[in-house]
């Protein structure tokens, strides 16, 4: 059974339709990449899966349960997390408080402590700055904190909205390495990216959104080779930046 099943999902903001009848299936353990131009509905898709924007029609099923009408906190409790676009770290809180906030629906203090230490082991920069305000972090470090914060919810599905946006090339590679590592440890990932080359390279499956509809879905290697996609997202001759 699929971990995430989005069926005929329609979302609109007032009279503007952001998603129209979108369906996608994400199997447990997969990295699923969603490509698309600005305004194609990528961020809306992630927000609708989390429940931060209501579905006008269609359904979202997660781990066999229909979550379409559930508020975000119930979906987070079931294992869906979103690393929002632009990281959205709470800069008036310390690094550690940000992490703690990620775990706010859990009560198993010893396990929370253990997982927080694991995150510090992974990101030594965060460990050194754990009691400093998150505003002291660089963009790349903030992205690591945003992912760490999402990890603290102990998710089964992590959705990332443009995680490489605005990062230095070194950190872009780090983010994609991290996504691979987390996936190897069993986490399923739904990835929205502008960096099509890298995003297709890590994905098991991919789809292309245009104006709220999925126009191509399938094996990322085949998509990467598709001339239409190369033209639109990879630049002619597939000169993907730092791919």
């Amino acid at each position: 059974m699929a971990l995430l099943q989005v069926s005929d999902l329609t979302v609109s903001y007032g009279r503007v339709t952001a998603l129209s009848g979108l369906s996608l299936t994400l199997e447990e353990g997969q990295i699923f990449t969603v490509l698309g131009a600005n305004g194609a509905g990528k961020s809306t898709l992630l927000r609708a899966i989390l429940g931060a924007v209501p579905a006008r029609a269609g359904s979202v099923a997660f781990a066999g349960a229909d979550v379409t009408r559930m508020p975000p906190h119930e979906r987070v409790a079931r294992g869906i997390v979103l690393v929002p676009e632009g990281r959205r770290i709470l800069i008036s809180l310390t690094v550690e408080e940000n992490l703690r906030l990620g775990a706010h629906l859990r009560n198993d203090q010893p396990a929370i402590r253990r997982e927080m230490d694991a995150i510090y082991d992974r990101f030594s920069n965060l460990a050194q700055r754990r009691h400093m305000l998150a505003s002291c972090l660089s963009g790349g470090e903030q992205q690591m904190l945003a992912i760490g914060r999402a990890m603290m919810a102990r998710p089964r599905l992590m959705m990332l909205d443009e995680p490489s946006l605005g990062l230095a090339p070194l950190f872009v590679s780090k983010v994609f390495d991290l996504i691979r590592e987390l996936n190897r440890d069993g986490l399923s990932v739904l990835l929205v990216e502008q960096n099509a080359g890298k995003a297709l390279a890590v994905a098991h499956r991919a789809t292309v959104l245009e104006l709220g509809r999925a126009t191509m879905t399938g094996d990322p290697k085949l998509l990467a080779a598709d001339p239409r996609l190369q033209e639109a997202y990879l630049g002619e001759g597939a000169k993907a930046p730092a791919a």
Binding site: R47, L50, A52, P71, P72, H73, R75, V76, A77, V81, L82, P84, R88, L90, I91, S92, L93, E97, R100, L101, G102, H104, L105, R149, A153
Partner: peptide, 23 residues
Amino acid sequence: TRFALYLTAVKSDPTVADLLGVS
């Protein structure tokens, strides 16, 4: 308490607090 943490989160960024599942 955690409540104080939620207060700060809601005050500084209600959107992200919502996305993290804070009511």
